[in-house]
Design a protein around this nucleic acid. Structure first.
Lengths: 168, 168
DNA sequence: GCAATATACTTGCACTTTGCAAGCATATGT
DNA sequence: ACATATGCTTGCAAAGTGCAAGTATATTGC
């Protein structure tokens, strides 16, 4: 029969584990924003991210969007579909290569974006208000490196992570 | 007819927005870990988080677990169910109040936990290797405050966030 | 002491989201 | 011109989620 093992731990405490701490802040902060845009505009998370991407470009194709907001092609396709249905985005066939449709934001898409962005900025401001000027600078540069390293970690996969002693 | 609006932006750039940057690192780093424990043990994300919580306690009831790893009671119940099926956890009726079942980790649950934790630590180590000693200290203390503030942001909801000029 | 209410979880079911195979349209190479 | 490659889309099954209702236990009021 199964027995309870005594509590004792090889040293990974969830609440102190860096990735979990990052996740927690991101998730808690995303929740109010998400309920805002989903209640107000019927937008999904993917829809919001894509909207944010096309708000800062004249036109983008699906793969550019995917790269910019870390979504796979399926999610991008569906997100664009949603935005088009809501009247927030338009697809036009690409000029030179018509496999790439150019997606651009509409006037009402921009209005919606601005309302969501206002809340987003408010949230970010509240977070930043808890940090000193020098902490912000440090966090900014640290995050840049963490982004790079996490992309590498993601790319190599768990087998490589367990194998290698150190991958410099 | 719908028209494309020119690109120009009220200042929220997704890739520079703090919550998105945190999310990105957390998500990229979670992916390899998640494919490891799901392929190897058939564990879901909730299952893994609960396993991590009961690995560091003698016994926990469902609401303690929920609080410790930010899961709602339904998810906790299902996660525990999964762990029990896999032989990684046990439920015993609580001693004084039998509405609270005490959940504890089994020997084989601990073995699984240790294997996942090893990968988790490897990942964290790679992230931390990109930071200097002083950056780690700063990040640690900054994250503590961000956790607190994000919990408050989550608690008040978007209506309050849009209303108030400043909530100190 | 026992019915009424409260608490802690669990289950079933409808609904949504996701992952992936296959498909369509367009382009490129031979 | 035909085969192959690329970029995106769709359909469907599997997994995940949210919520109403259910079970079991405890506490309260009478």
């Amino acid at each position: 029969m199964k027995q309870a093992a005594p509590a004792a731990n090889d040293g990974l405490k969830l609440s102190a584990w860096l990735p979990y701490r990052l996740f927690l802040v991101a998730a808690q902060v995303a929740r109010p924003l998400e309920s805002f845009y989903s209640e107000t505009f019927g937008l999904s998370q993917a829809g919001w991210r894509i909207l944010a991407v096309i708000a800062e470009r004249d036109a983008a194709n699906a793969s550019e969007i995917g790269r910019a907001c870390a979504l796979d092609p399926f999610a991008v396709s569906r997100g664009i579909g949603q935005l088009v249905e809501l009247g927030f985005a338009m697809r036009r066939p690409g000029k030179t290569d018509r496999r790439f449709a150019a997606v651009s934001i509409t006037r009402s898409g921009r209005t919606a974006f601005n309302r969501i962005a206002a809340l987003g900025s408010r949230i970010e401001a509240r977070l930043l208000a808890r940090l000193s000027e020098s902490e912000r600078t440090t966090l900014d540069s640290a995050l840049t490196r963490l982004e790079g390293e996490s992309a590498r970690i993601d790319a190599v996969g768990w087998r490589a992570l367990l194998d290698d002693a150190v991958t410099p």
